[in-house]
Design a binder for these strands. Sequence first.
DNA 1: CCTTGATGTTTCAGAATGTCAAGCAACGGA
DNA 2: TCCGTTGCTTGACATTCTGAAACATCAAGG
Lengths: 171, 171
Amino acid sequence: MTMTRRTDPLTVEVVDLIGTVVARYHQEYESAAARYKLTGAQAKVLALLNSGPLPMRQIARWLRCEPSNVTGIVDRLEARGLAERRTDPADRRIKLAAATEEGHATAERLRDSLDFAREPLSGLSDRERAVLRDLLRRMLGEDPAGGTGTTGPDVNLGRASDAGREVTGAK
Amino acid sequence: MTMTRRTDPLTVEVVDLIGTVVARYHQEYESAAARYKLTGAQAKVLALLNSGPLPMRQIARWLRCEPSNVTGIVDRLEARGLAERRTDPADRRIKLAAATEEGHATAERLRDSLDFAREPLSGLSDRERAVLRDLLRRMLGEDPAGGTGTTGPDVNLGRASDAGREVTGAK
DNA sequence: CCTTGATGTTTCAGAATGTCAAGCAACGGA
DNA sequence: TCCGTTGCTTGACATTCTGAAACATCAAGG
């Protein structure tokens, strides 16, 4: 236990703000997905597959859910012609889920319409954005040089985060 | 369209970081709720009711979902003795959902165990936290003096954000 | 070759969340 | 009193999720 207690008004407010960011992010994501008649889960998987085919297992790990769950989601994407299953030639147990041409196109359009952070971020200057970046990084306890690579679900639309800059020190 | 394009590496990184924050927040929230055998939705409603009774309609507005959905969630809370329904004496159409004593106790314990932002935030100094607060506020386009009052879902644990401080200028 | 165990996926049952349309109850004014 | 509106619930249905069981495939060891 550090001295930072929940009752600290500043901390409470930051927590509140983060909660608001989270809520708004979800709203944006869901409604962006709905624009293409996709659910949030389907959009996430489709975005993930936009970077390339993946075994069901990997998708489950990314989404942090059971593989059996992924089966249904990919089923629905497949039924709509946005994804397909291929059997990994090297190991026939593995089913690779892959976006079809239409799936890639939809993922691209979806990504473009996810304006959540781009639009409100436009109110911040480059300098402020850099500060925000550094603070968020520290908050997440990220390795300054480390990318979000494959550490977990990004919830972003299949964009490889090109991190790699140094932390300039937000102080 | 401003000049802030998605391809701007800095913006992309901030968006990525926000995505990570969102993902981690949800994880924390779900697992904190699960510790008390609650689902995320139930925890949200219970937290909301911790501040006082609310008409079903208001809860639905807060969660941004259909009122019929709230019926089920409150049903389950009620079945477990965490909430109850009262009829508004002033308007007998209105059903006020209210947390029971046990409901309040659970909400309190739940709130205490939601360490998400408190723990990682402890890596930031007071000054940095203030900067983060101001940047997030600006990002959200919030009225500087405005609280999160009843503007929308906070996704926080029923804590009345005691905003009202001035923005010190994050520049 | 053939068992044995581990791994990847699917299927099934069941719960929860969510939408929508229809229904019922109560309010409020004409 | 009648009527339109509002608040909540119910029912049918889709989706997401878990957990257990089934199935196929691989990889070794006998």
